[in-house]
């Protein structure tokens, strides 16, 4: 994996494209009866990370982990309660809606469900060129038709189908339309929110390869949000694991998959189904008990402690910081240690 090593070297020398610091996003829970806010859901509570040009940061977590809220807050679709989101040197959380508009050119999003995110009454060409109508000056009007055709070709669609409607395409092709639309404004950063989760396996691989090609050819930076760890390992340069609104562990992809030190990451990895378990390296069998607690009422201290087999009284009182431990990568566990029983895969 020399490619990933060199990518990491490059990442370290450059300054981050996106820098998220101590981000909090809270949703009020209103009671209709009392007509006031009765609780707050802490969807994101204190998330920090850097994203370097040309890299892919994988953000993994289960439902309720807050990974999608992080994305929506970066884009300004949700308001940050606290913290900063610095993109290309500007703090996005302090920008007004009109000041956000030029930033939206540079940050695009690809959604999970390509069908519900494409206007069914518009042709593919109209969908792609809509961005140019909103952001005049990116592509001159005389070039719209040609540029749209080029974009479709770029994402592996037949440019002659530019006048077709979304329902005339298969799921995988629709996701390609979504990618073409995201590329229309020549963005620097693309946030992929479960971008391949709804696709059949055979199509998922096509789209993953396309995303890789685009990154290589256009120098794109990805924030790749997904719940599928096999996919995340495949595409990411670095990986951050989220649990109940916080990042619990963050490292280069090889390190996080081979030497996870946080119990939650270890549990998550052990739960991943592999196609040929009889050929796979022996992995520790960890089945965590119970379900993810409500983000409206998270546990004190370490949020994973209620499901953790290592939990001690200290975990309830003292919240473990996300910091480098054991000379390895950052991990938010007082008792961080690599798994003893798991064999690591040779690379």
């Amino acid at each position: 994996m020399s490619a990933s090593a060199s990518e990491r070297d490059r990442a370290v020398t450059a300054s981050p494209l996106l820098s998220v610091r101590d981000l909090h996003t809270t949703f009020p829970v209103r009671s209709r009866l009392l007509r006031r806010t009765v609780a707050h859901v802490q969807a994101v509570s204190g998330v920090s990370f850097d994203l370097y040009p040309g890299e892919t940061l994988g953000l993994v977590g289960e439902s309720g982990s807050g990974k999608s809220t992080v994305a929506r807050t970066i884009l300004g679709l949700e308001k940050a309660t606290a913290g900063t989101v610095t993109f290309d040197g500007r703090d996005l959380t302090s920008l007004s809606a009109s000041e956000m508009r030029p930033v939206r050119r540079d940050v695009q999003m690809i959604f999970q469900d390509p069908y519900s995110s494409l206007n069914p009454r518009r042709t593919v060409e109209e969908i792609v060129r809509e961005a140019w109508e909103i952001h005049p000056g990116v592509v001159p009007k005389s070039r719209w038709k040609d540029e749209a055709r080029e974009l479709l070709e770029r994402v592996g669609l037949n440019p002659d189908h530019a006048d077709r409607y979304p329902h005339q395409f298969s799921g995988g092709q629709r996701q390609r339309i979504g990618i073409a639309r995201a590329l229309a404004l020549h963005p620097k950063l693309i946030i992929c929110d479960e971008a391949v989760s709804a696709l059949d396996v055979s199509i998922q691989a096509q789209v993953l390869n396309l995303l890789q090609d685009l990154q290589r050819d256009l120098g794109l930076t990805y924030l790749f949000i997904a719940h599928d760890l096999s996919v995340v390992r495949h595409v990411s340069t670095r990986v951050a694991v989220m649990y109940l609104g916080k990042i619990v562990e963050m490292a280069g992809r090889r390190e996080i998959f081979e030497q996870p030190t946080h119990p939650y990451t270890q549990a998550l990895l052990s739960a991943v189904p592999v196609p040929r378990p009889w050929d796979a390296p022996r992995r520790a069998e960890i089945v965590v008990a119970g379900d993810i607690p409500s983000p409206a009422n998270p546990p004190s201290g370490c949020r994973f402690r209620t499901r953790c087999w290592k939990a001690q009284p200290r975990c309830a009182d003292d919240e473990p910081a996300l910091q480098p431990r054991l000379g390895l990568h950052p991990s938010a566990c007082h008792f961080a240690e690599p798994l003893q029983t798991a064999d690591t895969a040779p690379m």
Binding site: A3, S170, Q173, V201, S202, V231, H234, F257
Partner: peptide
């Protein structure tokens, strides 16, 4: 065979997947 090659392998990652070409 094609499905097997389309799945990213968690234990033996490769740089590139081999998808099944075409559409369902």
């Amino acid at each position: 065979n094609g499905l097997m090659a389309s799945i990213p392998d968690l234990d033996h990652p490769s740089d590139r997947l081999t998808p099944i070409s075409g559409s369902p």
